[in-house]
Simulated scan of single mutants.
Amino acid sequence: MDHCEHNIRERAYILWERDGRAMGRDEHYWTLAEQELRAAAPAVEEAPRTVAKPRAKAAPKPPSKAAAAVKAAPRRRRAAAEGLAVS
């Protein structure tokens, strides 16, 4: 079942329930649903399409003190290890 038929089926069911579930009027509700959906379809297609503007790139943030400490840690460990090995 394609998407269009599914939408018609759902709309016809809603119309049928709204009118008290009258038996033997399935073609009537199907036709009403088709007409409603076709009338609504051009309104959706005519909506203007907007194009998103690209955002400007943010300036890079300077590294925080914590980040600088993490980067400096290996040097301290290396120096400490060399100091222990030399002693």
Rank of each mutant, 00 (worst) to 15 (best):
P60H: 03
P63D: 03
R75M: 04
R38G: 01
N7W: 02
A72V: 06
M1L: 11
S64F: 04
I14Q: 14
V44F: 06
R78F: 13
R77P: 03
A67N: 09
Q35G: 12
P54C: 09
N7C: 05
A41K: 15
A72T: 09
R38Q: 05
S64C: 10
K65L: 13
V86G: 00
H3R: 13
T50F: 04
E82S: 06
R9W: 08
K71S: 12
A43Y: 03
I8D: 00
A59K: 15
H6G: 07
A79Q: 12
A47Q: 15
R18I: 06
K65R: 12
A69L: 13
R25M: 02
K61D: 15
W30I: 02
A68H: 02
A85N: 07
H6L: 11
R78A: 12
I8A: 03
P48N: 05
C4Y: 14
V44C: 06
P54F: 08
L84W: 08
R55N: 09
Q35F: 09
A47F: 13
E17V: 00
L15F: 10
P54Y: 06
R21Q: 12
A79G: 10
R49H: 06
T31S: 13
S64G: 14
D2Q: 01
D19R: 14
E10F: 03
R21I: 00
D26Y: 10
A69C: 09
L32F: 06
D2C: 05
P60V: 09
A33F: 08
R78E: 14
A22H: 02
V86A: 04
R75C: 05
K71A: 14
K65W: 07
W16Y: 11
A59T: 11
K61M: 12
V70R: 08
G24Y: 01
Y13A: 14
E27N: 10
M23E: 14
